[in-house]
Design a protein around this nucleic acid. Sequence first.
DNA 1: ACTGCGAATGTAACCGGTTACATTTACGCT
DNA 2: AGCGTAAATGTAACCGGTTACATTCGCAGT
Lengths: 332, 332
Amino acid sequence: MSSPSRPPKIHDVAKRAGVSVATVSRVFSNPDIVSEKSRKAVEKAVLETGYTLNVLGRNLRQSQVGAVLALVPNLANPFFSEILAGISEVLRDAGLNLLVLDTRQVDRSSPTHGLRNYLNRSHADGIIVLDGSLDPALFQSPACPPVVQACEWNEGVPGARVLADNAEGARLAVAHLLALGHRRILHLAGPRQNSLSVSRAEGVAAALSCEGLEPVAVIEGAFTLRSGREAAAAVIAARPTAVFCDNDEMAIGLMAGLAEAGLSVPGDISLVGFDNIEMAAYAPVPLTTVRQRRAVLGQEAARLLLSQRDGDPSETRVLPVELCIRQSARPV
Amino acid sequence: MSSPSRPPKIHDVAKRAGVSVATVSRVFSNPDIVSEKSRKAVEKAVLETGYTLNVLGRNLRQSQVGAVLALVPNLANPFFSEILAGISEVLRDAGLNLLVLDTRQVDRSSPTHGLRNYLNRSHADGIIVLDGSLDPALFQSPACPPVVQACEWNEGVPGARVLADNAEGARLAVAHLLALGHRRILHLAGPRQNSLSVSRAEGVAAALSCEGLEPVAVIEGAFTLRSGREAAAAVIAARPTAVFCDNDEMAIGLMAGLAEAGLSVPGDISLVGFDNIEMAAYAPVPLTTVRQRRAVLGQEAARLLLSQRDGDPSETRVLPVELCIRQSARPV
DNA sequence: ACTGCGAATGTAACCGGTTACATTTACGCT
DNA sequence: AGCGTAAATGTAACCGGTTACATTCGCAGT
């Protein structure tokens, strides 16, 4: 449309439309306060020049980035993708972009490089932390934007939290096994220091203590398929009649490991998982598990971040979970 | 450390260190050209004031965003998470951030809103497109930054491409089935217009034509577990001895559907998938499939984008695939 | 005609860095 | 001492918008 040389600036549009730059700016940010006549003139000039707003200029002046950073422990882990989708959805409606950073890929501790650089108002307008293993000191800086923790959490980190009712979910799962008559129940847990593992262990203990029981063993896994399979030998050695797994992937891995050892699920051992990933229904034996709505969790995290940014006090929101009964657990 | 009022600016640091703002700036961007003495003074002043660089200012001046945008068809689909991880890794090493946008969540066509706003130099320094179904006209604007297509692609979109050797993968899979003696082979494909489906269909045809054969049927699915399961009835009706599925999820879904119908894999029907998702090895019957390295694909896409940004000509890179033999396919 | 007032618009400072260019400094050499 | 040159530093313009504040305009009321 115009000279092919350099991209048109707001100034060019203003000159062409016969108005000031302020008016052009207002047409973009607050069209209602400019007269019909000027507005039309500006819109025409925009079309003629092919002008597009340079967001960098606006962002600098308004001291905002227009993006929120999500810190995920492992971007390749499908568990997080649905949470991210929920986050993304809410952010988009608020006109914000989603930045994603894999905390594994980044130097977590260096005082001057690595993660610290990202935790800055000029990098993101807010941060959603899905990784409970980060140093809380990182978030103490006055330059750090508002923070919301989702899914996993860490006591030292300030700001709102949104999490599934992990203890209740584990309690439901184990209560289900107890109701089926199981007494020798094993807990295939996540990493010891992980906040999810801790609260799920509480739920397990709560359910078992009603009957005066304890787990026949607690085995530590890594939330992965492989670690589930590798736990099979140790599980068998403990001779449980049922296993509660801290997530579905370990449960499915364990299923494979038990099959290799010639044991059948649920014939020899009953299994309950956690998360209700889509694959749970398609496992060798459809998996009884605890559903947590990951998309909702992401949405809620984004909403909390937005309201925190607007000055609302930070709160902790606990999302309900429910038992999803399939075929991997049955009476002794 | 300093006044709690407003965050320190580069000017404050300069005054404190007794140097000019230019020197401070140079300490950050090019420390080698400033004298030892000044450098120490600046570093000391930075610590004392708690100064942190405001990236917005720098970005505006340098007309760069410091981020690359990835356009994914469905963020909740775990297939993409590993690609994103690969992209993220390379970008991080180049000092760039990863922005993610779910193209489902966004108005694809509006001329003034939706996607178009994002395809702008002031939004991202480059774009990686993982969605082959976008209108190529979107990328024609002179304000659009460099584009790389990965995985799926669209002929009309300019720029480099990186893709797995889909045709070869499909050919390998079907040749494997032929070698096992299968003659009645069915193709459970992706959506008809999808670029992956198209090239995989070519590979299927290439392998079959060597024997003068054609698929006994082609069924269109949606790359999902559910669509695989739902295809079971139509599959059975066509009476194949083997099925090649365009991805692992449909294969696993189909496995479930066949089991419900009382058919065994590979006893009654052999199955081959595509992708080698982690779950493939843990399916009810470990799935023979075609491996494509998704992380590598993402890395390569990011590398191509970087070199394209540096002025290198855009090229198309085809990544090798390999057959991964497990237990879901066996001789007739 | 004059005043008052709200709506519309314009001017110019400002956001916080980077960097071209000018200037100063340090130092070796005749 | 005088000069030339390279290294180090400083000054101020610049990136491209937004917005506080001042100004002008339009119109109703007396």
